[in-house]
Design a binder for these strands. Sequence first.
DNA 1: ACCTTGACAGAAT
DNA 2: AATTCTGCCAAGG
Length: 114
Amino acid sequence: MADKDFFDRVYRIVAQIPYGRVTTYGAIAEALGVRRSARMVGWALNQTIEREDLPDLPCHRVVNREGLLTGKAYFGGNVMEERLRQEGVTFLKDDQVDMERHFWHPEVEDDFSS
DNA sequence: ACCTTGACAGAAT
DNA sequence: AATTCTGCCAAGG
């Protein structure tokens, strides 16, 4: 297991979210082996705002299990929604994506410690 | 060192 | 079925 910081793992997963797809906090947490730490995922993403030294993270593709853009407030305005729409993501209603169509299940991280 | 908060999720009422 | 409550774990006050 890569004993990387919890944040780094989150970042790596988020960075793997395909264009036009979205995933959930819980799914990411689960992929990291800590299904019950979904809140930490959100916290980790929050840190990305301060940390500019991080790679381009499509954190706008991360929503909660209901498909709600719970973190849109941190993007300023409707940037999050607009970006998703621009990627072809369909919205059931404002601030709610159609995760039935665009949900992407993150892959479990492989520890490259071979 | 203790208590509160948080971009969630699932169980309980 | 809808709303409330609790669990989780890290960071900030």
